[in-house]
Simulated assay, not measured.
Amino acid sequence: MAQGVCELLWIRRLLTELGFKLEKQMELHCDNKSANDIAHNSVQHDRTKHVEVDRHFIKEKIEKKIICQPFVKSEDQLANILTKAVCGRVFHDSLTKLGIGDIYAQT
Rank of each mutant, 00 (worst) to 15 (best):
residue 46 D to Q: 14
residue 26 M to N: 04
residue 59 K to M: 06
residue 90 V to W: 03
residue 10 W to D: 02
residue 3 Q to R: 02
residue 27 E to A: 10
residue 51 V to S: 00
residue 38 I to K: 02
residue 55 R to T: 11
residue 28 L to T: 08
residue 47 R to H: 15
residue 35 A to Q: 08
residue 55 R to G: 01
residue 92 H to F: 11
residue 58 I to S: 02
residue 102 D to M: 10
residue 76 D to Y: 03
residue 8 L to C: 10
residue 100 I to Q: 01
residue 1 M to R: 10
residue 31 D to R: 08
residue 90 V to T: 15
residue 58 I to D: 00
residue 15 L to F: 13
residue 48 T to S: 13
residue 27 E to S: 08
residue 88 G to N: 14
residue 18 L to W: 09
residue 32 N to W: 07
residue 68 C to I: 04
residue 29 H to R: 14
residue 102 D to F: 01
residue 58 I to Y: 00
residue 22 L to G: 01
residue 62 I to A: 02
residue 97 K to C: 05
residue 40 H to G: 08
residue 48 T to H: 09
residue 76 D to V: 09
residue 62 I to H: 01
residue 77 Q to F: 15
residue 34 S to T: 12
residue 93 D to T: 08
residue 20 F to L: 06
residue 85 A to G: 07
residue 1 M to T: 14
residue 31 D to F: 03
residue 43 V to T: 15
residue 9 L to C: 11
residue 91 F to M: 11
residue 20 F to D: 04
residue 47 R to S: 15
residue 39 A to N: 01
residue 4 G to K: 08
residue 92 H to N: 14
residue 73 K to M: 09
residue 62 I to F: 00
residue 96 T to P: 04
residue 43 V to N: 12
residue 54 D to I: 02
residue 13 R to N: 11
residue 23 E to S: 09
residue 86 V to N: 04
residue 46 D to H: 13
residue 33 K to D: 10
residue 54 D to W: 11
residue 80 N to C: 07
residue 41 N to T: 04
residue 4 G to R: 07
residue 38 I to P: 03
residue 40 H to R: 08
residue 107 T to C: 10
residue 13 R to I: 04
residue 11 I to S: 10
residue 76 D to N: 12
residue 32 N to Q: 14
residue 11 I to R: 15
residue 18 L to N: 13
residue 60 E to L: 13
residue 4 G to N: 02
residue 79 A to Y: 13
residue 105 A to P: 06
residue 68 C to R: 03
residue 43 V to Q: 13
residue 73 K to F: 11
residue 105 A to T: 00
residue 25 Q to I: 04
residue 81 I to K: 01
residue 54 D to T: 09
residue 102 D to V: 09
residue 85 A to C: 04
residue 52 E to W: 12
residue 78 L to P: 07
residue 26 M to P: 04
residue 40 H to K: 13
residue 14 L to Q: 11
residue 21 K to F: 07
residue 94 S to C: 03
residue 12 R to P: 01
residue 104 Y to G: 00
residue 104 Y to Q: 06
residue 47 R to V: 11
residue 96 T to V: 09
residue 63 E to N: 08
residue 75 E to Y: 05
residue 45 H to Q: 14
residue 35 A to G: 02
residue 10 W to M: 08
residue 90 V to I: 13
residue 17 E to I: 06
residue 98 L to W: 01
residue 101 G to L: 08
residue 96 T to A: 03
residue 63 E to S: 07
residue 86 V to H: 05
residue 98 L to N: 00
residue 4 G to Q: 05
residue 91 F to A: 09
residue 31 D to L: 05
residue 37 D to N: 07
residue 78 L to D: 06
residue 43 V to E: 13
residue 39 A to I: 03
residue 6 C to A: 12
residue 48 T to I: 10
residue 97 K to E: 06
